[in-house]
Amino acid sequence: MSRLESALADLRLADTLASRDTALSRLDPRAKIVTTIAFLFAVVSYERHTVVALLPFLLYPVALASMGEVPWRWLARKLALAAPFAVLMGIANPVLDRTPMEVSQGVTMAGGWISFGSILLRFALTVTAALAVVAGTGMHALCAGLAALGTPRVFTAQLLFLWRYTFVLGGEGARMATAREARGGRGSPTLAVYGSLAGHLLLRAFERAERIYRAMLARGFDGEIRSVRTLRWSPRDTVFVAGWVAFFIAARAVYLPLVLGRLLTGFGG
């Protein structure tokens, strides 16, 4: 059960991070969403054995984390928690793909190792960028941005409700499990106990939904959720989007590390 509690604590932390006033949180959520999508597509558009050419893209998550004052430890921990899947899916590459590839003067590596490295790098890039944006924006601004970009209202309302009541229902679930442990319940419950435990939680969910609905009706709810929140697009947002997209295009078009390396070593070509 500590799993549920720690997940809730995690969400709360992300929310607290997002509520601070930072250079990142001041940007319009639409700017951050659009730029991050461009970033994701740029990163995944590379061929599977790409490692070095991807390195310049690290700048984006690094810049986001700095602008949003996102704690590096937090990012690293989240990355580590999510990593096993990518490792699992990539680890077969070195075994399956043994085409030799020359990495440096006289050094060859199995293509599989290179593509494995590429998977890990892609994973780190995409995950840290997404997490930094979320930690520097927050669920509410994100939903407002998504709605403004044309996401169906039903869905953004659903996201907000889910977000709000995860804290309430998650707390109830955590307390039920604590009560079970306090009375000597150890390990995972049997299916019968689970059915009753989660079942009661489900029942409470239904009852809660009914009460919320009544409370909404009492305040004039007519099917549409209105908000006084407005988004403001400023020149800063235009600069953010245009600047980064230009960088992604440049990094995709020019093999930046090689250019840099040639400048530094004097090798022409």
Partner: peptide, 16 residues
Amino acid sequence: GVLGAFVFAAQMINFA
């Protein structure tokens, strides 16, 4: 919304 929150919470309750 509330059922979504339920599923979210229930995904983290394991059973044998």
